[in-house]
């Protein structure tokens, strides 16, 4: 095992982990607030990937050429529209179930996931789509001979940087704004928060909007980096991001990011040095192992049993 390969695998893991983390945030926030696993979240990410490609093509047709401007505009537009999708999804499929059993929204989320997949398949076709390469070029580190180097593309750097910025902003927002405080209050005790005058419906809507925009950031960045997507991509990555959220401690924001990074690193290191076939088996075994010893995940608060 050479040093370059190890560093390269760590880089791969960090990039993948950032993507998992961004999507895991959506799971963890929704779970923290209403205690529900939003299985349609992966498909929100898929919607974001399609919107990215569509806005990119539209803006290019309008004559915008400069890549930084394009990236910024596409990112903002995608976030806005994906957030709208997140909001409507909550209104249609989850809000009517607010006061029923906890498992009912789970099934309606699975239904929603089917709806979104099929909606995109019918409107955009089943074939896989792509975007042109917008961010080109890469840097080579530690170069030492023809095979000995660590190569990082600018797109990968963009993913990690944007993920860090996005998460920091979100963290700041949760910690320091009135709405963020309301969110935390609802997370701790929904009924109490409502009694103290917090508009819980609004908080829940805001959480869905934020979760969807984070998924949109991930969708846009991934589309710029990998350039390929189809209507089914939300499924695999959704399960992985959910795993990351639980690994970090579901309900905890830093936990989601940490869980994402751990999962990403674990996958790429295992895949790189042991076996790619069993990479996912390893990822899930890691989850089971961590939960056996820390039943609330890495950063989750231990559950308080109330009598």
């Amino acid at each position: 095992m050479s040093f370059h390969i190890l560093v390269q695998q760590v880089v791969n893991g960090l990039v993948l982990g950032s993507v998992y983390g961004l999507i895991a945030v959506g799971y963890t926030m929704v779970y923290g607030i209403i205690g529900m696993i939003n299985f349609a979240h992966g498909d929100v990410y898929m919607i974001a990937a399609y919107l990215t490609a569509i806005f990119l093509a539209a803006l290019t047709l309008l004559g915008i050429q400069s890549p930084p401007l394009l990236i910024l505009l596409v990112l903002l537009l995608t976030m806005a529209f994906t957030a709208l999708y997140g909001w409507s999804m909550e209104r249609i499929a989850y809000k009517p179930l607010r006061h029923s059993t906890r498992l009912a929204p789970l099934i309606s989320a699975i239904g929603m996931s089917l709806i979104l997949q099929n909606y995109v398949r019918l409107s955009q076709g089943a074939r896989s789509q792509g975007t042109p390469t917008l961010i080109q070029g890469s840097v080579r580190l530690f170069e030492n001979g023809p095979d000995q180097f660590v190569q990082i593309t600018y797109a990968q750097i963009l993913i990690v940087v944007t993920a860090v910025i996005g998460m920091s902003l979100l963290w700041y927002w949760i910690q320091s704004t009135a709405m963020g405080r309301a969110c935390r209050a609802v997370q701790q005790d929904r009924i109490m928060a409502a009694l103290l005058g917090v508009d819980t419906d609004r908080v829940i809507s805001v959480v869905f909007v934020l979760g969807a925009s984070m998924a949109a950031v991930a969708g846009t960045l991934v589309t710029f980096n990998y350039g390929s997507f189809d209507f089914f991509i939300g499924f695999v990555i959704g399960i992985k991001a959910f795993t990351a959220a639980v690994l970090g401690g579901i309900g905890s924001l830093p936990g989601a990011m940490l869980g994402g990074l751990v999962l990403g690193l674990a996958e790429s290191i295992f895949s790189g040095f042991v076996n790619t076939d069993y990479k996912d088996v390893f990822a899930f075994s890691l989850l089971v192992g961590v939960l056996i010893f820390r039943p609330s995940g890495l950063l989750g608060r231990p559950e308080v049993e109330k009598v």
């Binding site: 249609i92 009517p96 179930l97 009912a104 099934i107 309606s108 239904g111 929603m112 089917l114 909606y119």
Partner: peptide, 13 residues
């Protein structure tokens, strides 16, 4: 698939 998804959501609601 679309209709089956709709049915699942509607039945739950």
């Amino acid at each position: 698939g679309l209709l089956f998804g709709c049915a699942m959501v509607l039945m739950m609601v």
